[in-house]
Write a protein that binds this DNA or RNA. Structure first.
Lengths: 344, 344
DNA sequence: TTGAAAGCGCTAACAC
DNA sequence: GTGTTAGCGCTTTCAA
């Protein structure tokens, strides 16, 4: 049996489609009597508005897209979890996609709203894509980029102060008396813009303490995942002069590094202290627990959605609006991987 | 400036909308010359088809929804990661939502496609919702349910054999000489249908070995997460006669239990062996690594998408088609949390 | 307060 | 092969 349409309801209720539409959307004032009639007809026919038709008529899709490099990265799933309910509260459904960090996929997504992927706005966490590539993005697309801004543009940025946070994390290691500090996660320009900010903070902390950075201890990794963290750590431990502390550019990297250390019988933090970045739940349950930089994810999710909906609300007028950079709060969370069991 | 429409392209190319549509969709044979003209016009106007309009005309949304209880549960994010590319390959975009295990939210979603949430089919992982509630689901909705089937219906199920898998996991602990085996994760009917299957397998393994189940060691938890796992483990360790092994109904539960054990100085697996369920990546990097039941997630994702698209293809005819139960493969993966470091 | 009617942009049956 | 045209189901301007 065919789905009931608004027309069917109108016919049954003996009113015009216009009136039904008014009732359904709570628009113009409708007589109580009329409303009752219409609602009765709606119930009788089990009528549900066709969203696709509505969107076509309204000239919007009622959806936003959230695109991240990897969905199985806890940081992103935690963020997504914060974004979805807020978007729904704002009347939007959420399309999700991952790019695997593929620059082509990312570019395609931005340059021209990807084929067949209909959305009114986009929350985007670029990875393989240099931020300046966003510059020639479709300027009519409401866009919020996650991560610190590295280039101006007509879109918004939401992120924490990576340089400051990294500096604090490194300073924490230094304050514990560590002197040979490694960094795992550096990435070359232009892909690794976020990574480079962290490296900058790492260097600043050394400067602050009048310490030299041993360049051999700055290890690049293609991804911020457990496997790469473990691999980098193994290389560090193979050295004749291994580090006594490591600043990892993500908790996943730190967890991988931890695994590699314990596997070799290297004690954490006695032999080597470890600090991560992101404050994912996993780091609160690992053994030892992982010290980390904790970004205010709730604020990031909330701000990203808020800014995006605002831009969507502006309509095509978005084009003129300059990009805003929003800095969410962060804090250092010291746990066992730097303080030791004594922390308990 | 207004977006170019198909009509604009037709006008510029000097052909009819019909022809442009043909070119865009690669339908009917089109002369090379015409095609070239049309493509030139498309490029010139930077034309992109309006997906919403297309969907309305085609009477579909081109989207499927994936609904899980919690997005930040690694098992679900890993699954989602397998589902999304496959759905896109099949021409569908993926809407994602989480229910927080709220039965009302789940029911609403099924009973009548949720307001404003447009999708042609649904992959659904119920939690708070008893499977028999799915019975009075909209029978015209193409639906694939994740998890083992506990009731018949007109929709498909994709999952592993939970009873058998749980039996194997428990048998593994028994084969290691453990005799006081606890289970963490049981849940009351009707919410915890999946949990109860695992409890059944747990009991069967005891029967097989002519062992008694100590009912005091079967611990219920509201959720399958780290915190609940840790809490349950603490209670077990508080007993005068703690278990020498624990079958945890998810890896997250096992990771929480592990944390609680180590926190007390209880050795794993020497004092208590631990086995989980799901084989999430985290369990391969924890210290010790977690033994687990590994479901073939790729197969689950692939089958779920495949069955769903098949049902969507059937159109309204879906109604008659009986539900199919697909059993994906699983295997036991023994790691350090049962075998000890020697496993390396 | 409600009705009539013109689209929203695309598809596809039907003709030529 | 290509054009004509009538919808898809809803919104919304303009009248009444």
């Amino acid at each position: 049996m065919r789905e009931a349409t608004l027309r069917d309801v109108a016919r049954l209720a003996g009113v015009s489609p216009r009136t039904v539409s008014n009732v359904v959307n709570g628009y113009a004032p409708v007589t109580e009597a009329t409303r009752a009639k219409v609602e009765k007809a709606i119930a009788e026919l089990d009528y549900r508005p066709n969203v696709v038709a509505r969107n076509l008529a309204r000239g919007r899709s009622g959806q936003i897209a959230v695109v991240v490099p990897y969905l199985d990265t806890p940081y992103f799933s935690e963020l997504l979890q914060g974004i979805i309910p807020r978007a729904r509260a704002g009347g939007y459904n959420v399309l999700v996609d991952q790019t695997d960090g593929d620059p082509e996929h990312e570019r395609e997504l931005i340059r021209r709203r990807a084929r067949g992927f209909a959305f009114d706005g986009l929350i985007f966490s670029p990875l393989g894509l240099a931020q300046r590539d966003l510059a020639d993005a479709d300027p009519t697309l409401p866009l919020v980029v996650l991560g610190e801004r590295s280039a101006a543009g007509s879109f918004d940025h939401v992120g924490i102060d990576d340089v400051a946070a990294s500096r604090e994390a490194t300073a924490h290691l230094i304050s514990l008396g560590r002197r040979r500090i490694a960094a795992i996660g550096d990435q070359p320009y232009p892909t690794g813009e976020a990574a480079q900010l962290r490296t900058t903070g790492f260097r600043q902390a050394h400067l602050d303490a009048a310490l030299e950075v041993d360049e051999a201890l700055v290890i690049g990794t293609p991804r911020f995942n457990r496997a790469d963290g473990a691999g980098a750590m193994r290389r560090l431990l193979n050295r004749s002069d291994p580090p006594d502390a490591v600043f990892c550019y993500s908790d996943l990297v730190a967890l991988g590094a931890l695994h590699a250390a314990l596997e070799r019988g290297v004690r954490v933090p006695e032999d080597v202290a470890l600090i991560g970045y992101d404050d994912i739940e996993e780091g609160r349950y690992s053994n030892p627990t992982i010290s980390t930089v904790s970004p205010d994810k709730e604020a990031i999710a909330a701000t990203a959605v808020e800014r995006l909906l605002m831009r969507i609300g502006l309509g095509r007028g978005t084009e003129g609006v300059a990009g805003v950079e929003v800095r969410a709060a962060h804090r250092l969370v010291a746990r066992e991987s730097t303080l030791g069991r004594a922390a308990r």
